[in-house]
Simulated assay, not measured.
Amino acid sequence: MSFIYKVIDHVQLAAPENSEETAREFYSGILGFTEIDKPASLKKNGGVWFQAGGIQVHIGIEYPFVPARKAHPAFRVGNMADLKTYLGEKGAEYREDDRLPGAKRFYMTDPFGNRLEFLEWEK
Results as ranks from 00 to 15, higher is better:
residue 73 P to N: 00
residue 36 I to L: 04
residue 65 F to T: 05
residue 70 K to W: 03
residue 81 A to F: 04
residue 35 E to Y: 02
residue 36 I to V: 12
residue 70 K to R: 14
residue 62 E to A: 11
residue 78 G to S: 15
residue 45 N to Q: 15
residue 41 S to V: 13
residue 57 V to M: 11
residue 62 E to F: 02
residue 73 P to V: 00
residue 90 K to R: 15
residue 71 A to F: 07
residue 45 N to L: 15
residue 64 P to Q: 08
residue 78 G to K: 15
residue 78 G to L: 15
residue 88 G to E: 01
residue 85 T to Y: 06
residue 51 Q to F: 07
residue 50 F to E: 06
residue 41 S to N: 15
residue 88 G to M: 02
residue 69 R to G: 04
residue 58 H to G: 09
residue 46 G to C: 00
residue 56 Q to E: 13
residue 87 L to C: 12
residue 84 K to N: 01
residue 51 Q to D: 00
residue 91 G to H: 07
residue 61 I to L: 14
residue 46 G to V: 04
residue 89 E to N: 15
residue 81 A to Y: 00
residue 61 I to N: 05
residue 62 E to D: 08
residue 90 K to T: 10
residue 78 G to P: 10
residue 85 T to D: 07
residue 81 A to L: 05
residue 40 A to N: 03
residue 82 D to I: 07
residue 79 N to C: 09
residue 81 A to G: 09
residue 85 T to N: 12
residue 89 E to G: 14
residue 91 G to D: 02
residue 75 F to D: 13
residue 58 H to L: 07
residue 74 A to W: 06
residue 46 G to Y: 02
residue 47 G to A: 04
residue 85 T to I: 13
residue 80 M to C: 00
residue 52 A to M: 11
residue 50 F to T: 04
residue 77 V to C: 01
residue 87 L to P: 04
residue 83 L to I: 07
residue 60 G to C: 10
residue 58 H to V: 11
residue 74 A to V: 02
residue 51 Q to W: 02
residue 88 G to C: 00
residue 73 P to Q: 00
residue 53 G to K: 02
residue 90 K to H: 10
residue 82 D to Q: 11
residue 44 K to A: 04
residue 46 G to D: 07
residue 67 P to A: 04
residue 56 Q to P: 07
residue 41 S to M: 14
residue 36 I to R: 02
residue 43 K to V: 09
residue 84 K to L: 02
residue 46 G to Q: 01
residue 47 G to Y: 01
residue 35 E to S: 10
residue 80 M to Q: 00
residue 70 K to T: 14
residue 71 A to N: 06
residue 75 F to Y: 12
residue 36 I to T: 05
residue 79 N to S: 13
residue 85 T to E: 13
residue 39 P to K: 05
residue 85 T to G: 06
residue 76 R to E: 08
residue 36 I to Q: 00
residue 45 N to W: 15
residue 54 G to V: 12
residue 51 Q to I: 13
residue 55 I to H: 08
residue 66 V to C: 06
residue 65 F to C: 06
residue 80 M to S: 07
residue 52 A to T: 04
residue 82 D to F: 01
residue 37 D to C: 10
residue 43 K to L: 14
residue 84 K to E: 10
residue 59 I to C: 12
residue 46 G to F: 05
residue 38 K to Q: 15
residue 91 G to K: 08
residue 84 K to D: 05
residue 57 V to F: 10
residue 76 R to Y: 15
residue 90 K to W: 11
residue 38 K to Y: 09
residue 67 P to D: 03
residue 49 W to K: 05
residue 57 V to D: 11
